[in-house]
Amino acid sequence: MSPGARGVCTVLLIAGAALSVDPRALAVAWLVLALAAASVGLGGVIVRFALVFIAPIALGALLINGLLHAPVPGDQWWSRFAVAAPAAMALSLRIAVIAAAFQLCFLPLIDGGRLITFLRTWRCTGRALVVTLGGVTLVAELKLRTRQVLESRLAQGLGAVTTWGALRQLPFVLLPLTVYMLDAAANRSDLWARRNLVERLERYRPSEAEPGFGAVSAAALVLCLGWLGVALWFR
């Protein structure tokens, strides 16, 4: 999909989800997005996110919305939660659809290294581009270094058993990571200044050809426009 179409599709999907109030329409949209994600190998991410993040929010929303409704005299105690259920479902499904759209749009870019093309298409250039690319690169590096530090401490018999023990270990785990990263950042800044990185990045052309606006982009745009129409229709 072309970077331009990818960005527009994400905006349309998010706008549709934000406008939609019907839980059925939102559920169908989430299912379609989950299937699309599964086709590019991201189905697990979408489903895991729904279970880990959305399910607790749905429960919390049901609890709080239910308590906002006064119980009907003579009715069962749970009737107030039954009244609140559609609103709580719409709310959590809306977040799930927005999340799925976000993940489907951006995760393939980061994993596939096509982020720079996408960002430049959407006018993220100069310093913002340097910071974004630096952040993406350093997060992966920090995770690797964290694993190394934790494994080396475990090998020395310094693994934490209790939560309090783990909490006390935190500064000792973080210090080598922070020192390394700040030192490396200072050295990197010298190098960037000497090589004038911001200007060089402006002139950089990726070796991989930018995907053009093809049938996939057109189909995705039509689907997303259709979703926006459905969301407006059901309001």
């Binding site: 340097v130 920090l142 939560t163 990263m181 950042a185 800044s189 010298d190 960037w192 200044a193």
Partner: peptide, 30 residues
């Protein structure tokens, strides 16, 4: 220029610490 580039190099460190420390939290079960 040197200071500008230092800021550009340190901001990603902050980003990495904010995002990546989640891995430490999960590993230590905090």
């Amino acid at each position: 220029t040197q200071t500008d580039y230092l800021v550009l190099a340190v901001i990603p460190v902050g980003i990495a610490l904010n995002v990546g420390l989640g891995a430490v939290v999960i590993a230590l079960r905090l």
